[in-house]
Each structure stands twice: as structure tokens, then as C-alpha cells.
Design a protein around this nucleic acid. Structure first.
Lengths: 204, 204
DNA sequence: GCAGATCTTGACCGACCGGTCGACTTGCCG
DNA sequence: CGGCAAGTCGACCGGTCGGTCAAGATCTGC
């Protein structure tokens, strides 16, 4: 009897369940069995769609990036305001997202990419690479905004957009880590706005 | 026959082994059995000295803080140079440590506190708290240097030393995370010096 | 309606998890 | 020397880990 089961197909349910569980706990703490139970699926089906937990995780990273881009970055970085204001908007959204998430789960969950990066970078090379690529894409998006700011004359030409974006990304991840550790979204509200002020100059 | 065994006592060997293994892999990936094997000790002895893996981890955090303070912070923050130069020295040492470590292990391992914070903050409340305290101590040490810089006239009075130290700590952790993910110590050399430039102003 | 591909199911695998326990050895003190 | 505490040991616990498999159910195109 195929009633609700195929309306949202099995593969998607596994992906969504895994994303939610791993994001709110950790890779190691969420077993395949737990994912299957949450998705209402048996383990055999899991391995019909995904060859391994590792492969599932790589698929999660793609899904999470798409989600983040459409729900956060795409909105924050829309060009209806000046470039630097877009970064400010991003900072505000990051706080609101984490705040909202923490109300539901009672926990500040931090950055999904940072969490997996920290947990698995020394242990799983394919996942490490995938996250590295994801970080590179995020950095490029920020770098693009900084370059737009330079073209608009709102940012000095001697600023290195790429390195500044890299630093901003690092700072963002660090703030998320501290907020997660202190389990307090206000850490984000206090610290993250400083990100917009960061500047790294070009070296000769 | 008690030859080498008690020269460095068992408890210390367990602690050191666990520190090395967990730091170079992760909490979840290093089992009690692996720690015992590395320490040349049987599991029964482990549980004679430590009531649980969690308790061991909390002891590790204390040991790691002491180590970090004596081998890094104490040296970098010595008052033989002006306050802001101490921060620069700290940055250099952080790079050298990670570089050296990565030569031995083939991996950039990142910050021991940040690693555990990220992995366990949502899962183990006592450990989360312990790391929070550790971060607070680190932040205070940085804050002290910034206040010294203000007294020396090298840093404007309208800078919020506490918040700036908090931001610096966040940035430090973020840089370590990115370096670990990219498995490249040069990330630290490129990004971390920017930490010394960070400033957060007091709010009215 | 039939065949073949596409799922789904549940039982099962060996390995490992953190932790327990009682018996034993060893060091120390009177 | 005796005795007791401190430390060591190895077998063992129930449970979970990621992953496998063969058989059956269901969907699809002809």
C-alpha cells in the first residue's frame, strides 16, 4: 500500500531526516538506524538509495548548500541595497536563524558546514574535500560582494577582497562555534556584526 | 615486576595517551579500548582511575589548558615586549605549533578546545561547561594583554577590551577550523595575523 | 497480463562501544 | 612477617555500529 510514502519520495525523506538529525547532533552520534527510524524507512531501503553513510553525508552537504543559498545568502545578498549593507543583512539573518533554531531545539546548533568540517576533516577525506569546496563557494560569494563594494566606491581599492572574504568566513565560523559552545544566540548578535568591519589589505 | 610501568604512573599514561589520540582524531572516534592499548594498560585499570570516558575528557581539558598556558601563552605573553607585540608573538607561535604538528601527523589538527567544543557542546553538558570555562580563561588572558596595551597608550581607550578579546578568540577558532579543513598550516600564516588588528569599540 | 526493473522488508553479520566484575598481584605499613 | 589497600587483569555484559542479503512486493512499459 503506497499512500503517503511516495508523495515525498523515500530518498528525499532519508536525506531530510539525516540532515536534521546530524545537524542537531553530530555525524558520529547519529547512526544509520536512527536516520531510518526518523524517516520511517527500513535499513535495506537506505542502502538501496545510498551506498554508504559517507555518500549520504556528501549528498547532505549539497542539499544544505542549496538550502542556505536560497534561504539565506540569496536573500541577504540581493542587490536591492548597497554591497556592504548586504553583509549587514547577512549578519542579521544568521543571528535570527540561529535564534529561531535554538528556540525549537533548546540548543544553538552552529554552522552545519563548520560542524561537519570540525568533526570529520581529519577522518574522512572525501567529506573533508566536499566541505572545502563548499567553504570556497561561500568565500567566493562574500568576495563578490566585497568587489561590488569596491566598484561602488564603498570599499578601498587596496583591500584584498579574496583574503578579506576568507577572514570573514573564518570569523563567522569562529563566532558560530563560540555561540554553540556557550549555547547562547546572543553571542552571535554581539560578535558577528564586527565581521562587516574586517579588512585585509593587499600585499605588494 | 614493576619496571618502567610506575616510573611514569599509569594514570598519567592514560591521560597522555587519551589526549594525544583524541586530539589527533576525535572524541567519538577514539574508544576507551584504543586509549588503553596506546597506554599499555588494561580496561580494568582505566576504570580504576577514571569513572567514565566523560570524566577523563574533563581531566584532559585541564591538562591541555595547563600545557597550553606553559608552552604557548605564558611564553608569548611574557612582558619582555610591548603588549600588542605579545599578540603577534602568539600568532606566530600558533602557526609554528600547528605547522610542526602537521609535519608529524600529516594533518592540521586545529585547536584542541575548539575541536571538542564543536563535537560535544550539543551532546555533553558537563564537557560543554568545562570548555566554556576554558574559553573564558583564554579570553581573559587576551583581554589582559589588551588592557595592558591601553595602559601603555598603544591602544585607544574607547576599545572594549573584553569584547575585542572575545572577537579575537572567535577569529582564532575560525582560522584554526579552516586550516584544519583545508589541511594546510599556511592558512594560519595567511589569516591569523589579522587577529591582532581586530578592534571592537565600547558601546554607550 | 506479463516481464523486468525498481523499491521494500526484516533478518542477519562481525566488530566495536562504554562499562562491570571478581579474582589476582603488588606495594606499603605496622 | 602479616594484612590491607592500591592497582592490575582478562573475561564478560548488553547494546549499537555500518553494512549485507535474499526474498518478496510494487510499479512500469509492452
Amino acid at each position: 500500500m503506497r499512500i503517503m510514502q511516495t508523495i515525498i519520495d523515500t530518498q528525499q525523506r532519508i536525506l531530510d531526516s539525516a540532515r536534521e538529525l546530524i545537524f542537531s547532533r553530530s555525524y558520529a552520534d547519529v547512526g544509520v538506524a536512527a536516520i531510518c527510524e526518523h524517516a520511517g524507512v527500513k535499513k535495506g531501503s537506505f542502502y538501496h538509495f545510498f551506498p554508504s553513510k559517507q555518500a549520504l553525508t556528501i549528498a547532505i552537504l549539497d542539499a544544505q548548500f542549496d538550502d542556505t543559498q536560497s534561504k539565506m545568502i540569496g536573500q541577504a545578498f540581493a542587490d536591492d541595497v548597497p554591497p556592504l549593507a548586504r553583509l549587514g543583512r547577512f549578519v542579521d539573518m544568521a543571528y535570527l536563524f540561529q535564534k529561531q533554531l535554538s528556540v525549537h531545539s533548546g540548543r544553538v546548533l552552529g554552522c552545519p558546514f563548520g560542524n561537519l568540517a570540525n568533526e570529520l576533516s581529519t577522518q574522512d577525506e572525501p567529506i573533508r574535500e566536499k566541505i572545502q569546496q563548499t567553504f570556497a563557494r561561500l568565500q567566493n560569494l562574500i568576495s563578490g560582494v566585497l568587489q561590488a563594494a569596491q566598484q561602488a566606491g564603498d570599499l578601498a581599492q587596496d583591500i584584498d577582497a579574496g583574503k578579506t572574504a576568507h577572514s570573514m568566513l573564518a570569523y563567522f565560523e569562529g563566532v558560530m562555534l563560540l555561540a554553540k559552545n556557550q549555547n547562547d544566540p546572543d553571542v552571535i548578535r554581539e560578535l558577528l556584526p564586527t565581521m562587516v568591519q574586517m579588512r585585509v589589505q593587499k600585499v605588494a
